[in-house]
Amino acid sequence: MFNELLQSSVLIGILYSGIRLAAPYLFAALGETVAQRAGVLDLGVDGIMLMGSFAAFYVVFETGNLWLGVAVAVAVGALMGLLMAVISVTYQAEQGISGIGLYLFGLGLSSLLFRVMIGSVKGVSGFPILRIPVLSDIPVIGEIFFNHNILVYLAYLMVPVIWLLFDKTTLGLKIRAVGHNPEAADSLGVSVNRVRYFAVIFGAAMAGLAGATLSIAQLNVWQENITNGLGFIAVALVYFGGWRPLGVLLGSLLFATVNALQLWVQVKGINIPSDLAVMLPYVLTIFVLIFASGRVRQPAALTKPFERSG
């Protein structure tokens, strides 16, 4: 029964799906990693993604210009991030509550805009598959890795970019310091709040990009609550990945690949109850979280607003 799954076409299919499915998680989780490393827990990711995905979809629906859609999604994400930063950094509102508020705001506003501006579920033609010349001709490897739309490549490119940001730049050093000991950073003339503004807005722009990936590259439709909680999984993946880009990459890939695997298990008619199959990725995530929780260090100042004290 299980050797059905071991055919090469199925294995390629699982890996290919896993890589594609992971892309929106990667954007959102890498962005959230930046915000959290600076000490801000942004639980509004899902709402930001909804706004970004709607903005991108609307622009493409009206103009057909895909890159303009991406740009607008990033800008809308950044605006949502600015809102989060004003509330949680400047006004120091409790981060968990403000994040949930932002999520509800994004969920409600995107649905409202959809009804007013579009009205019913429509489709657009999104980013096409971009076969990378030469590389995509490599058997198996080419099919799995170099046969995706451009936003998928971009998502994976962000992994080394964020790693470089953290480990090799002065800004990254500031982000890490501000998230772990803002008093120390402040005493050295680092503007804690400015760094946090940057991190939150950057993270939210990435969430906007994650939304665009859904609406104009992978699904090419828009529907109310299209993310269906994907942004919250992305937040969990940040913990899963131990606040490191590589960890987030592994987490996203694992989650997405197991999801792809369970779909194949069902499609191939392997006799597992569908309820169990769909639980698989979540169960696995919890399992890894339990085992990982001991070894990772979360940013010490996460969720703590900064204020100079006597």
């Binding site: 008093e183 120390a184 950073a185 680092v190």
Partner: peptide
């Protein structure tokens, strides 16, 4: 109370903000 970020190295703490 020391103003050091204990997850960073000595050199990183020194370079912070410069």
């Amino acid at each position: 109370h020391f103003m050091l970020v204990d997850t960073l190295t000595v050199a990183e703490n020194v370079a912070l903000g410069l």
